[in-house]
Design a protein around this nucleic acid. Structure first.
Lengths: 152, 152
DNA sequence: GACAAATAGTTGTAGGAGCAACTATACTGG
DNA sequence: CCAGTATAGTTGCTCCTACAACTATTTGTC
């Protein structure tokens, strides 16, 4: 029998769930990141940016939209986009209607790189998602995470 | 209508789910981290270590068990524990049966700090978990994440 | 229209984490 | 018992990211 502080239960059901979420995410992000890096020479953070851009209409987003979508600080996003620009995967474009804002748009090279990475990603998901959760379970999970992710 | 490469669908259901997982986790980790830091002056990574230690029998774990539990590299874990030791929250103890191994054990200060942090964490979870997911939904989510997290 | 407040993005700086190379110890087969 | 291999942990180095302070532009208010 393990003795624990009864006032602050480390075994609380919600604490366990939160810990499980952190751990699961960390494992999946790590393994995917390694695979993307090894097979496409593409860091996971770059992949996330490119994916967000493809989802966006006209394949472009403002800096702050990217920062929000990938949950980075604005300063971190500036540097991240710097590296993507240097690699030729995206370009910065000025925004005519708001001279403070900057659009980030995919280049053809970025588009091609994303296709390549998506191939790797899809086979990764086949192995690590489809193999573990049924289609029904996946949509349940999507629903739950959507609730969790909703703005307060 | 948005034009997208049909060969590599960025809108694939599994891709969406994975992205949602990354985003949800990043948001929750960030907000919890800020709160722990502000209210307890305790980085999230330190909290994770202390929590793992309390769960362990005899409140101690070997370095590699910690690295695995919190999904860090062994090198990163060494430095992380260095900082916790310096802060007086844990101590390193040699392992008699294997002289390569090192135990990390909580100090009384670490135990107290964890109690404090768990208070903050529990109220965070009350706000951000209990308010969004019912008890049933939470246990469903736990089940799904457990499957996802299972070793391949 | 002008001043205050809010917003978009960049930069200086510091700290944290990973990888690869390394040391030390333990195991395994001959 | 010895050689070769596997395991535990640390260290050097590099890159990435956050935070805070800053500039530039826009918006809101009187």
């Amino acid at each position: 029998m393990t003795i624990q502080s009864s006032a602050c239960p480390s075994g609380d059901e919600k604490v366990e769930l939160f810990g499980l979420l952190l751990e699961t995410n960390a494992r999946l992000a790590r393994t995917l990141g390694l695979e993307l890096e090894a097979q496409c020479d593409l860091p996971l953070a770059w992949f996330e940016v490119l994916l967000q851009l493809r989802r966006a209409s006209e394949s472009r987003l403002k800096m702050n939209q990217i920062a929000d979508a990938i949950v980075h600080s604005t300063g971190g996003t500036t540097r991240l986009i710097d590296r993507l620009v240097e690699a030729g995967l995206v370009v910065r474009e000025s925004c005519p209607s708001d001279r403070r804002a900057i659009y980030v748009a995919m280049t053809n090279a970025g588009d091609a790189k994303l296709d390549e990475a998506l191939g790797v990603h899809l086979s990764y998901l086949e192995k690590n998602l489809a193999g573990r959760l049924s289609s029904t379970e996946r949509s349940t999970l999507t629903g739950l995470l959507t609730k969790l992710n909703a703005p307060s």
